[in-house]
Simulated assay, not measured.
Amino acid sequence: MTQLPTVLACGLATLDVTQVVDRVPGPDEKVVARSLAVAAGGPALNAAITAARLGCAATLLTRVGEGGPAAAVRAELAAEGVALVDAADAAWTLPVSTVLVTQGTGERAVVSTNAAGRAPSAPADVTLPDGTAAVLVDGHHLDLALGAAAAARAAGVPVLLDGGSWKPGLDELLALVDVAVLSADLRLPDGPQGALDDDDVDALLAGVGALGPAVVARSSGPGPVDVLVRTGGRSKRGRVEVQQVDDDTIVDTLGAGDVLHGAALAGLARLPRTSLALPGAPADPGLVLVGALSALTVATRVATASVQHAGARGWTRDPELVATLRAALDG
């Protein structure tokens, strides 16, 4: 029997309370929800479950703690086959996210306490699971992220950043990242903050790359994923076109970015080392670009499938779809 690739996702876990509404209420207004769902969430958690569904042995390093919401998260991770390393102390309270999904468009509005200011920032002492092939960090729980990325760097294991937004300490973390996949919302603190034109995107990719990653990609929802590879003093640009779907098939965009990053993590764990630009092992930028485009192409397919189902993991309830996507990664 072939051994499953082992991956570690490090970052935020939450309990998500999601309600579907016809529209987001205005000030002092109440609306009646069409449905209610309570489930485990968070970028790293959703990425870990995505990777597990795509054929990886996944571990989540986070802070969960005790209490009812924490127990629900633990139970869901166990049901999904994701191992949990819980770094919470007795004072930790699991963040709860309130999510409003607009019926008809799948757009979402999210309110969450996340983990800002609630944990130490000095790097934690992290031991990678045996056989770890790739590590994901989402920038939350910076002490855990720095510890996990440093351990991966020492072991020659690639580190993937889920760059949802700029967070304090991200420049320090990027120095230990090999592949950064940015959302359309991320901006450099000293760069343009509004809508970006093509030159701005080029500058963003180069600016993030200058902080450490050899591969920097930027997703843009249903738009293409732009990719920059810089290694051995040379650079290559590439682009992944995203499969387009009819608007009336979009059910929910919640967690689509998390799914994209989890699928990219699963793809990265399968790439041969010759397709990775790891420190101390110079690689041809063309080969690295081919590997990055291959992993991201399948990752965008998984993310596209996710928005056509309810929640971040609705797509996993279709065994045929899961099998097809997993085979695309294995191929």
Rank of each mutant, 00 (worst) to 15 (best):
S220N: 13
V177N: 13
V24Q: 13
T50C: 15
D86R: 09
L254E: 10
G156V: 13
T113E: 15
Q103R: 04
T231C: 05
R237K: 01
A281V: 14
L8I: 05
V73E: 00
A91V: 07
A150P: 02
R239M: 11
V179L: 13
L321V: 04
G68E: 14
D16A: 08
S121A: 13
G257M: 05
L4M: 12
D89H: 04
D190P: 00
L271T: 10
S183Y: 06
A37H: 10
E241Q: 04
T93I: 12
P272M: 10
T14F: 02
I250C: 09
L271G: 06
V82I: 07
A115L: 03
V82T: 11
A116E: 13
L160S: 09
P279H: 03
A264M: 05
L325Q: 10
A78S: 13
G267I: 04
L61G: 14
E107F: 00
V215A: 00
A40H: 06
G106W: 09
L61I: 02
G267Y: 07
A214E: 09
A39C: 08
D198A: 15
T50Q: 09
L268E: 12
D284V: 03
V229G: 01
T127I: 04
E80D: 14
A175G: 14
R187H: 15
T93P: 00
G67M: 11
G139C: 10
L144C: 08
V110N: 04
S294V: 00
A75V: 06
G139A: 11
T102C: 11
T6A: 15
A214D: 09
V159Q: 08
L289Q: 01
V179Q: 06
V135A: 14
L196T: 00
T59H: 14
Q3T: 14
A217W: 04
G131F: 08
C56K: 12
L329Y: 02
A48N: 13
A44P: 12
T105M: 11
V20R: 15
V208R: 03
P213C: 02
L100T: 02
V126S: 09
T102I: 05
L268F: 07
L100S: 12
I49C: 08
L54D: 12
M1L: 10
G55D: 09
L271W: 07
A13P: 07
E241A: 09
T98A: 14
L265T: 03
A214H: 02
T300P: 08
V38K: 02
N46V: 05
S294C: 03
V73N: 00
A150G: 13
G67P: 06
V64K: 02
L321I: 02
A9Q: 07
S35E: 12
V215W: 01
L54Q: 11
R301D: 15
E241R: 01
L268M: 12
L205Q: 04
A122C: 03
A152P: 06
A9T: 04
V290K: 00
D200A: 15
G169W: 13
V110L: 14
L144Y: 11
P222F: 08
A312F: 09
A52F: 06
T316D: 01
E66Q: 15
R118G: 13
E107L: 02
D190E: 14
A133V: 06
